[in-house]
Amino acid sequence: MAHDGTASPTGTGNTELVRVATSEHRLARYGLIATALTFVGLFLVLPLAAVFTEAMRNGPGEFLTVLSDPETFAAIKLTLLVAGIAVPLNLAFGIAAAWAIAKFEFKGKAFLTTLIDLPFSVSPVISGLVFVLLFGSHSLLGPWLQSHGIQILFAVPGIVLATVFVTFPFVARELIPLMQEQGTSDEEAALSLGASGWQTFWHVTLPNIKWGLLYGVLLCNARAMGEFGAVSVVSGHIRGLTNTMPLQVEILYNEYNFVAAFAVATLLALLALVTLVLKSLLEMKYSAQIAASRRH
């Protein structure tokens, strides 16, 4: 932070000397900045620019035609539906898990925290595979489900389940360190003044964690809407029915319908940009009430 040596006790006359001694040569500095910027340009900025350029290749007219296609519309609707179910479920779970883990001391807590993080270390394809093995026609449950006419795989429930699996840790992971840091004294004060458990949660805990909560929901939602591998395995790729937006992008691309693929991709890229802007705003304004900006 204070890299011009303001914090050092050497006095004002030596500030320049300290700066020279604890910083790189100007050429090295420029070289490092140039390296970093080139890398960011090649790997982050150009891909993003490519999405928008390719989508507009044949002008905005075709871009809009693609977006008004009923299949695209169905994919958008399905993506919103899946995220609309998965995010609130994991939000409720995240609050419960954080409450249990952060506010109490109990045996097996560290193990429980590790289990919650498990989906992060599992390949998305395997996250989809486990549900195929559980509900597929060769599984234990498969024949029973079939005889009762319940369709989970290659249908919306399977897509929701796979998405819930993949986005499982996001809210909990954000809330646990935040609530651990805040401790229990606020809640104890409220309870001793006669508030009920729910009142304490709504009026004391929730206001304390709301920005952290929003941060977790933001990341959870971005992943839920963008998940590809897990959803691809369980979806069955039925056009207009079980294709989410990322799957629609894949299908259009594999049909060499590049403009259409990039047009749908534009919407997902915009989602990513909005997520990044909101995330940066939250980090800037409420860094004290967000755990992730310090841990990641």
Partner: peptide
């Protein structure tokens, strides 16, 4: 820097 976290992988792939 967080773009790869936020951008769906399929979009990154085709880009």
């Amino acid at each position: 820097v967080d773009l790869p976290f936020a951008l769906p992988t399929a979009v990154a792939g085709i880009a």
